[in-house]
Amino acid sequence: MIHPKQKKAQTVSLDMLLGFFVFLIFIILTFKIWNVYTIRFQNNIDTQDKWNIALQISDLMVKQRGYPPSWELDPINTEVIGFAWNENNLSELKIQTFVGYSMVTEGYPTQQELDNYHTVKKLMNIERYNFWFRIIDFDKTVVDNLQSGIPYHEINSVTIRRLVLVDGKKSILEFSIY
């Protein structure tokens, strides 16, 4: 037979155990949520980095001639990339030179293509990312085969589109990094 005092003691420890488990679950949940937000914070930082870099590079492309100003005639010695005659008015020759150097055949790229692609990435100071560049018209058709880089298949990519004139023709410059 259980003594009344013993019964009371059992109830107290059961209550405490229950409380302890609820508390434990609460702590574990808090940690899980914390970790989720930490990962989101990191992803957010990474995405912001990409936006910033993509904006800077697209700005250079559409606002500047590059350095040296006629770099398209001697691409090996290019220091800064730029396609513009003046703001948003781009030279097709400069774009063609850039595309020629950074074009990567989808599926089976040659070593030369990959080496050139990496050189162009280094020139833009985006070695840790991949990029995809193209000039499209308003129907999203690529203009004069002006596209280069590696097409993206990632949801974490960032794409900047700028309205430009390419040798007088209205087009869209699209630059993505991922």
Binding site: N52, I53, I57, L60, E79, V80, I81, M124, N125, I126
Partner: peptide, 20 residues
């Protein structure tokens, strides 16, 4: 190197595309 370091209690790095 086109690198920028900001130093406070920690150090943060970022890059830019202009070499000059």
């Amino acid at each position: 190197e086109r690198s920028l370091f900001v130093t406070g209690k920690e150090q943060v790095f970022c890059s830019y595309p202009v070499s000059r």
